[in-house]
Design a protein around this nucleic acid. Structure first.
Length: 304
DNA sequence: TCCAGTCAAGGGTTC
DNA sequence: GAACCCTTGACTGGA
């Protein structure tokens, strides 16, 4: 089991998401920004190893305009050594990383242009994992997309688009249940159709489900992951922010709820991403709980 | 230097 | 049909 957090480290004084406006584009700016972002990514990974946080979601903006036609800078070759070094570091420390392309990636849009741009974005983000030399257990997670007033047609379009994806994307793509439109059961239908693993989000499942108890839902999702090709089930973990609208993520982990969720895992091996506002602060507490329960090996000698 | 407005991209909800 | 929300940090330009 690994514990992780997404994109941002609040303890370090750097960001992997430095960018600029489209109107300010220049190759020089891409070169400098990517260099800084990659340097920060390595620092975050080193911090994570030091603190036994071996799961990390890399921010989508590592390369500004990475899938946009304006970006003609050959960053893949220019930074090949840096990407490889980061990948080597990840592998040497038994870490796992992922990307979560944002809401603009919609594979089931009726608009062919949106689908085409979405595929390009997946190719871009997958290519960074390829450059790192990581295997198929490093994933790209997306949601099923929009409803467009007709769930069946929307799911059919998703499946049709999936079948056209490059193999390099297919081997990494996983679909996550969301909190408003597509439940675990919808995602399981996509798995039945094309074999795409289902990334399980406990909080979204609380918001939208078909009555499955949490423990059963985790088992259903876990069964969609091939232990060798996909690695252990990935879970996004969060809980409701008290006093806020339904679906709002909590600012900090509520330990009793986290402990309760661990009970629902019932021994299933999973890597857990804490989608919680205070980032690594909650991840540290999750690590402490799991270490205390004997379900996480204590941190080994840090290698910086 | 600070701060409010804005930023490539989509879709759903509300009014 | 327009406005606004999600979610969010970082950039930008004016004060």
């Amino acid at each position: 089991m690994r514990i992780g957090y997404p994109c941002v480290n609040e303890s370090l004084d750097c960001t992997t998401a430095s960018t600029f406006r489209l109107a300010s584009y220049s190759d020089e700016r891409v070169e400098q920004t990517v260099r800084n972002n990659l340097a920060c990514l390595l620092r975050i990974l080193q911090y994570n190893v030091q603190h036994n946080l071996r799961f990390f979601r890399i921010g989508s903006n590592l390369v500004p305009f990475g899938s946009h036609p304006i970006n003609t800078f050959p960053w893949q070759t220019h930074f090949a050594a840096e990407f490889r070094a980061i990948g080597d570091y990840i592998k040497a420390h038994d870490m796992r990383v992922s990307f979560h392309p944002d809401q603009f990636v919609v594979l089931n849009s009726p608009d062919a242009g949106i689908v085409q741009r979405s595929v390009q974005e997946l190719v871009y983000q997958g290519s960074m994992l390829d450059l790192m030399g990581l295997d198929g257990t490093a994933k790209l997670q997306i949601h099923a997309g929009g409803l467009y007033g007709d769930r069946e047609s929307a799911l059919t379009r998703w499946i049709a688009t999936y079948k056209t994806l490059p193999d390099a994307v297919k081997r990494r793509l996983v679909v996550e249940n969301d909190d408003r439109l597509y439940s675990l059961q919808d995602c399981l239908r996509l798995f039945d159709a094309v074999g795409v693993p289902v990334l399980f989000d406990n909080f979204h499942h609380e918001c939208l489900n078909s009555g499955e108890p949490m423990s059963m839902a985790v088992q259903l999702a876990a069964a969609t992951w091939h232990p060798t090709h996909d690695g252990p089930l990935m879970i996004d973990y969060s809980s409701q922010a008290l006093g806020e609208r339904k679906g709002k993520h909590t600012n900090t982990m509520q330990e009793d709820l986290f402990r309760s969720f661990l009970e629902d895992l019932r021994g299933i091996d999973a890597d857990i991403m804490l989608e919680i506002k205070d980032k690594e602060a909650s991840a540290h507490r999750a690590c402490a709980i799991l270490t205390d329960l004997g379900r996480l090996a204590p941190v080994s000698t840090p290698a910086l």
